[in-house]
């Protein structure tokens, strides 16, 4: 049984706390957050957990066996380093880090300490994405040619002090959101040779961005990731892909899901809409807990998470410079 110390009390911490309730081998025994709402968060989502205002104090004082980091991106490094110093296994939300230097430091820290560590590239647990990869790996669409993904949403209107809207902290839509597709496509295809990106940006009280990233993989496959934080408030979050090979095509569009369609309804009534019996976040954390319990290596390596950060940072650099950028050259 893993005794989890959860760091953070925002949107992702809530998602993880909910998932841990469904995981037999893990229990959140402590929560640490800088936010004033930490007591309320714990009361609602982790009623048996001790509450701390300082994460390192929690790691020292609470009887935790692993740490789950659900905090703003720039804080990941010091929190993971703190866990590693204490020999605590750690799960960290994506993106791994805001900079290559921080990503390198995290990879070094977890490898030196020998802790079990994984980054939350949760797309690898979404069945529509897993199934596509399984079929590609089985050769069902032949040799890959063009891979197109979309991830479209309104700007995040949550996050402490609107940190998502601060590019210095979040890296914007490319590092915070497109990174899901970067990691997925790299998982499917392999290393990226170069990216060319365009990003439109405007401010309406929140940071709006709409980005397009062309990716050239080392094997010659071409990808296109379109990611938006530019949709109007209230727009449904949309993901889609079209993965084309020389022997076939895989298409998915979340707009076609419609597991449960609701018209009207009594005010305040709850109508769950996910078609999945188990959420991808629960799958992801269950896998990590299992790795911690059994000593197995997690699906997603520290290097994987760092490579995804490099692709995203290359895309940001390309957007700024108007030229193709290699993930290998960023941060050097």
């Amino acid at each position: 049984m893993q005794r989890v110390g959860l760091v953070g009390s925002g949107f992702m911490a809530t998602t993880h706390a909910t998932s841990y309730q469904e995981i037999a081998d893990a229990e959140v025994v402590a929560v640490a957050s800088l936010s004033d709402d930490r007591e309320a968060f714990a009361a609602e989502h982790t009623p048996d957990a001790d509450v701390y205002g300082d994460a390192e104090e929690m790691m020292d004082d609470a009887d935790v066996t692993m740490v789950d980091v659900c905090t703003p991106t720039p804080t990941h490094r010091s929190l993971v380093e703190a866990a590693a110093e204490r020999g605590l296994d750690a799960f960290c939300e994506k993106p791994l880090a805001r900079t290559v230097a921080d990503a390198d430091a995290i990879v070094d820290a977890v490898e030196d300490a020998g802790i079990t560590f994984m980054t939350g590239h949760v797309l690898r647990y979404f069945p529509e994405y897993v199934e596509a990869k399984r079929r590609i790996d089985a050769g069902e669409i032949g040799t890959l040619g063009t891979l197109h993904t979309e991830r479209l949403s309104a700007p995040p209107r949550y996050g402490t002090n609107s940190w998502f809207g601060d590019k210095d902290q979040s890296g914007g839509v490319l590092l915070d959101m497109a990174i899901h597709d970067f990691d997925y496509l790299r998982w499917v295809v392999g290393e990226v040779n170069r990216v060319f990106a365009r990003t439109a940006e405007w401010d309406d009280g929140h940071l709006n961005q709409h980005s397009s990233v062309l990716l050239r993989f080392e094997d010659g496959t071409t990808g296109h990731v379109e990611a938006s934080w530019g949709y109007p408030d209230g727009s449904p979050f949309v993901t889609s892909y079209e993965l084309a090979g020389d022997g076939g095509l895989l298409e998915f569009d979340a707009r076609d899901e419609n597991a449960v369609r609701v018209s009207g309804g009594a005010e305040g009534a709850n109508a769950p809409s996910s078609p999945l019996a188990k959420s991808p976040y629960t799958q992801e954390l269950e896998h990590f807990v299992d790795c911690v319990e059994t000593g197995r290596d997690p699906d997603i390596t520290p290097d994987d998470a760092r490579a995804a950060v490099r692709i995203a940072l290359a895309a940001i650099a390309s957007s700024e410079r108007g030229e193709p950028v290699s993930p290998a050259e960023v941060g050097t």
Partner: peptide, 30 residues
């Protein structure tokens, strides 16, 4: 990438317009 032909079948264009607006197009024979 898709066919054994002597011309390209992958066609991704990333463009800007004269007023700076960004414009991307996938016109592949995919």
């Amino acid at each position: 990438k898709f066919h054994d032909i002597g011309v390209e079948d992958v066609n991704f264009l990333s463009m800007t317009l004269t007023d700076g607006t960004e414009f991307v197009l996938d016109g592949s024979w995919s």
